[in-house]
Design a protein around this nucleic acid. Structure first.
Length: 198
DNA sequence: CCCTGATTCGC
DNA sequence: GCGAATCAGG
């Protein structure tokens, strides 16, 4: 493949958004991350190293939204049943238990895009963990099912019935199917669950 | 180990 | 110009 204007543009866009070279390579297809990095340098998009320019870098990145329609108001969607392919004996000590991928099949479909009402089970998860998750979702790799690997967080975000659906994709925590933040809501000490209402 | 970006250098 | 190989971290 060659660096058509279109591809270069996407490259610039993604690089500007802070996407990694490997991600950009996957998006573009037909090129390796090395190719992307090489191109980035040739384009002079490299970072501000060696240099100076101090930290004037105004990094306000509240919404690096792509194209197409609407903004994703980050609906706090819950996983309906993550593909937990890591049967790797968690051996979660006796103080841990799985709580996240609850609600195997939600009876009714909640339209995405709209603020979802607090899920019942949400109250069983520590507020800190939830805050961490919503924060982490902004840094998520937003991978598709096909892009998941043994070491990318498999926490689903959004409604599978819509376009606004993807998997976290951040590096998983050793041995776990999720990244640190998601492990936080997926596995938690029973102690914290004990008193929690219900 | 897995992942990052940076550099080199033959093509 | 291109990008695999390699290097240097995290």
């Amino acid at each position: 493949m060659s660096w058509t204007d279109e591809r270069v543009e996407l490259l610039k866009k993604m690089w500007g958004e802070g996407q990694s070279a490997s991600q950009i390579a996957k998006e573009l297809g037909g090129v390796t991350r090395n190719a992307v990095i090489g191109k980035v340098h040739r384009l002079g998009l490299s970072n501000r190293t060696g240099g100076e320019a101090a930290e004037a870098a105004p990094k306000a990145e509240p919404a690096p939204e792509p194209k197409a329609k609407a903004k994703r108001a980050e609906p706090k969607a819950k996983p309906s049943e993550p593909k937990n392919d890591a049967p790797t004996a968690e051996a979660p000590a006796e103080e841990t238990q799985i709580t996240a991928p609850a609600q195997p099949q939600r009876p009714k479909i909640i339209p995405a895009g709209q603020p979802l009402p607090p899920q019942p089970s949400a109250n069983e998860i520590s507020p800190e963990a939830l805050a961490k998750v919503s924060a982490i979702e902004k840094k998520a790799k937003r991978l598709t099912l096909m892009e998941l690997t043994e070491r990318t967080c498999k926490w689903p975000v959004g409604d599978p019935a819509t376009e606004d659906f993807w998997f976290c994709g951040l590096p998983v925590q050793q041995g776990k199917p999720y990244c640190e933040a998601h492990v936080g809501v997926a596995f938690q000490p029973m102690s914290s669950r004990r008193d929690r209402r219900r």
